Simulated scan of single mutants.
Amino acid sequence: MEQGNDTEISEFILLGLSEEPEVHSLIFGLFLSMYLITRFGNLLIILAVGSASHLHTPMYFFLANLSFVDICFTSTTIPKMLWNIQVQGKTITYAGCISQIFFFNVFGFLENLLLTVMAYDHFLAICHPLHYTVIMNPRLCGLLVMVSWLISVLNSLLQSLMLLQLSFCTGMEIPHFFCEINQVVGHACSDTFLNDMVMYFGIVILGCPPVAGVLYSYFKIVSSICRISSAIGKYKAFSTCASHLSVVSLFYSTVLGVYLGSAATQSSHSGAIASVMYTVVTPMLNPFIYSLRNRDIYRTLKRIVGVLVLYVPITLGLKKCP
């Protein structure tokens, strides 16, 4: 891309979470552990939903998609961060930065939409149980996921194409451990008015309705639960959406905490540290929340882990035989 000063930028510098070399090994070990736990936990969720026939329901179909998105979401940022620490470098190519922004926005916004779809699914299951199986048929479930993907990809594609129109100065330093779009746009040398408008438009038009949908769904759910006379009925109804409510609360509280906190402190570095919560910690905790608070998932995972524990020693024993 031609720049205003006739220079072409080829790479950005990611300053990371800390510039102290003695802390890098600790960060590497911590993030590698969290990344492996995230991948393994979410893969187990996908395997459980796919292998157990009694989990072939809309709720678990959406859960499996959410687990896949969590794996992809963390894979857009953590591997590059770990690689930079391992090779003691801080650079990321221009193409790599744009690609990271694209996929980060796709999977980040897709998680938001899937949480909204799951809230709608719980709303129908609790507030309209007699019509639930008719409304939430496989065709509608697939359509909801497909539309979520389409909206997320188109939104991210627009953001990335707008980003390609900007000019950047050489040696640009990003005070983050990945290419965050606000940080990149904020360091551009050219006018960013259109980019800012597109970002704000995306937040207002595409971000606020899902949040409003989640709030409305749970308002109706709570109202329906309160009208249930028996305590057992209330408990069963609440247990149906308890895991999803925990994930929704964790996701939105961390996202809002990061952006409101960074706006209040005006510190990019503190915002980078805080963003670890929703980019790494939340996807890692989601499998634990669903497996520990959901008996069906817990029992299926227990059976799968038991099979794996038996399979590995048997396989190793067969390999030792001549």
Rank of each mutant, 00 (worst) to 15 (best):
C141K: 05
V222N: 14
Y298G: 04
L47R: 11
I13R: 15
S33F: 13
P58W: 03
V204M: 11
C226F: 07
V312N: 06
D196W: 13
M277F: 15
L206N: 11
I174F: 05
C241G: 00
I98T: 05
Q100S: 15
V276F: 12
F68R: 08
H176S: 12
I228L: 15
T279K: 10
P138I: 06
Q183P: 02
K302A: 06
S217K: 00
D296E: 14
K320R: 13
G171F: 08
F102W: 12
S229I: 12
V185I: 15
G202T: 11
I205Y: 11
L32C: 11
D121E: 15
V307D: 11
L154G: 02
T279V: 09
P283A: 04
P210V: 14
L250I: 10
F62W: 03
I205L: 15
L43C: 07
S224V: 04
L206A: 14
C189G: 08
V222Q: 09
L164N: 07
Q183W: 12
I98Q: 07
A125P: 00
F102G: 03
Y94E: 02
V134A: 10
L26N: 08
L32F: 01
R39H: 06
K302T: 14
S53Y: 03
L43G: 13
L44E: 13
E11P: 06
N105S: 07
Q165A: 08
S10M: 08
P313Q: 03
M136T: 11
I151L: 14
T93A: 08
M284P: 03
G50L: 04
L15W: 05
S18Y: 00
N112Y: 03
N42D: 04
V255L: 10
L215K: 07
V248F: 11
R295V: 13
Q165G: 03
T91V: 09
A231T: 13
A242Y: 08
